[in-house]
Computed example of a mutant assay.
Amino acid sequence: MHQFFVEKSQVGKEYVTITGSDVNHIRNVLRMKIGETIRISDREGGNYFCKIAETGENFVQADIVSVDEEGTELPSKIYLFQALPKGDRMETVIEKAVELGVYEIIPVAMKYCVVKLEGKKAAQRVQKWQAQAETAAKQSKRSIIPKIHEVVSFKEALKLAENCDIRLVPYENENGMEGTRTVLEQIEPGKSISIMIGPEGGFAEEEIAKARETMQSISLGRRILRTDTAGICMMSMLMLQLESRI
Rank of each mutant, 00 (worst) to 15 (best):
23 V>Y: 07
26 I>K: 02
26 I>E: 01
27 R>S: 14
28 N>T: 09
28 N>W: 10
31 R>P: 02
31 R>K: 12
32 M>S: 01
32 M>T: 05
32 M>G: 01
32 M>R: 04
33 K>F: 12
34 I>F: 11
35 G>E: 08
35 G>T: 06
36 E>D: 12
36 E>I: 12
37 T>N: 11
38 I>K: 04
38 I>D: 04
38 I>G: 09
39 R>D: 13
40 I>A: 08
41 S>N: 06
41 S>E: 08
43 R>G: 08
44 E>K: 14
45 G>S: 09
45 G>N: 07
47 N>S: 15
47 N>D: 15
47 N>C: 15
48 Y>Q: 03
50 C>T: 11
50 C>I: 13
53 A>C: 11
56 G>L: 11
57 E>T: 14
58 N>P: 06
58 N>V: 13
59 F>A: 12
60 V>L: 09
60 V>C: 08
61 Q>L: 15
62 A>D: 02
63 D>N: 15
64 I>F: 02
66 S>T: 14
67 V>S: 08
70 E>H: 14
72 T>G: 12
73 E>V: 06
74 L>K: 00
75 P>C: 05
77 K>I: 09
78 I>H: 00
80 L>C: 00
80 L>T: 04
81 F>C: 00
82 Q>N: 02
83 A>D: 03
85 P>S: 00
86 K>H: 05
86 K>R: 05
86 K>C: 02
87 G>H: 12
88 D>L: 04
88 D>N: 08
90 M>L: 04
91 E>A: 05
91 E>Q: 02
92 T>M: 13
94 I>L: 07
95 E>Q: 15
96 K>R: 01
97 A>Q: 01
97 A>L: 04
104 E>N: 06
104 E>P: 02
104 E>D: 11
106 I>V: 14
107 P>I: 03
107 P>T: 00
107 P>C: 04
107 P>V: 05
109 A>S: 15
109 A>F: 13
109 A>Y: 11
109 A>R: 09
111 K>Q: 14
112 Y>M: 12
115 V>W: 07
115 V>Y: 04
116 K>C: 05
116 K>F: 09
119 G>I: 09
119 G>V: 10
119 G>P: 03
121 K>G: 01
122 A>K: 07
122 A>N: 07
124 Q>G: 12
124 Q>P: 02
125 R>S: 09
125 R>N: 10
125 R>Q: 10
126 V>L: 03
126 V>W: 02
127 Q>V: 13
128 K>S: 12
128 K>C: 04
128 K>D: 08
129 W>T: 03
129 W>A: 02
130 Q>K: 00
131 A>P: 01
135 T>M: 14
135 T>G: 14
136 A>K: 03
136 A>R: 00
137 A>S: 08
137 A>D: 03
137 A>N: 07
138 K>V: 07
139 Q>G: 05
142 R>S: 09
142 R>G: 03
142 R>I: 11
143 S>T: 13
144 I>V: 15
144 I>G: 11
146 P>F: 12
148 I>F: 03
149 H>R: 15
151 V>W: 10
152 V>G: 05
152 V>T: 07
153 S>F: 08
154 F>I: 06
154 F>W: 07
155 K>P: 09
157 A>F: 02
159 K>Q: 14
160 L>D: 08
160 L>F: 11
161 A>C: 07
161 A>M: 12
161 A>L: 11
161 A>P: 06
161 A>G: 06
164 C>L: 10
164 C>A: 14
165 D>L: 09
166 I>S: 01
167 R>H: 04
168 L>E: 03
